[in-house]
């Protein structure tokens, strides 16, 4: 499945408290968490997002806590893909487990500007910046991640191992 949406840029080292402040972690509901997506960066940040838009970040996106509420809040805000220079380790695992697609673009992430129209072609690891007529190709996913995605996320993967699906 491919994606198309408008890019919303944020900076380096965006931490999980910026993505969803800890005091709001009193629910597991995606819609409620989504309403506060990135409110630790800027109150009301999420109001600029339309369903299907794409988040573009710098280095070490998602650093800090292990809260799975962070990828859930991004998904709950209607954002299906995050492009970044690099991702923090725990966030990386959590995102795939939750079905949020991550594209690790390295230095090329900087070429994308706020408001650009992006097309994401996961099978090719390709980000097409339609505004700038620019193609960025990301390294292929590790096999373990591909296996989890093929099973529809970690829940499906474990269900299969337990012989419940």
């Amino acid at each position: 499945m491919n994606y198309k949406g408008k890019a919303h840029k944020v900076g380096d080292h965006i931490d999980t408290d910026a993505i969803i402040p800890a005091r709001l972690l009193v629910t597991t509901d995606a819609a409620k968490l989504g309403e506060n997506c990135l409110s630790g960066l800027e109150p009301g940040w999420v109001r600029r997002v339309r369903k299907g838009d794409i988040l573009v970040a710098g280095r070490n996106f998602g650093c800090g806590s292990s809260r799975e509420h962070a990828p859930i809040a991004i998904l709950g805000a209607g954002i299906p893909v995050v492009v970044a220079h690099s991702f923090a380790r725990i966030f990386y695992r959590n995102a795939f487990n939750m079905g949020l697609l991550l594209m690790e673009a390295g230095d090329d992430a900087e070429k994308i500007q706020d408001g650009d129209t992006l097309e994401i072609i996961p099978a090719e690891g390709r980000i097409r910046d339609a505004t700038r007529s620019l193609d960025i190709v990301c390294p292929p996913l590790p096999e373990s991640m591909s296996a989890i995605i093929a099973a529809g996320g970690l829940v499906g993967h474990v269900k299969r191992r337990l012989g419940k699906s």
Binding site: S66, N94, V155, H157
Partner: peptide, 26 residues
């Protein structure tokens, strides 16, 4: 542990690392 500071237990010579809730459920 579903807490990023699970790495604390390296202090007693354990390999310990934080993960998200669904990894912990698994």
């Amino acid at each position: 542990g579903a807490d990023s500071h699970t790495c604390t237990y390296g202090g007693v010579g354990a390999f310990a690392t934080g993960m998200g809730s669904t990894d912990i459920a698994a």
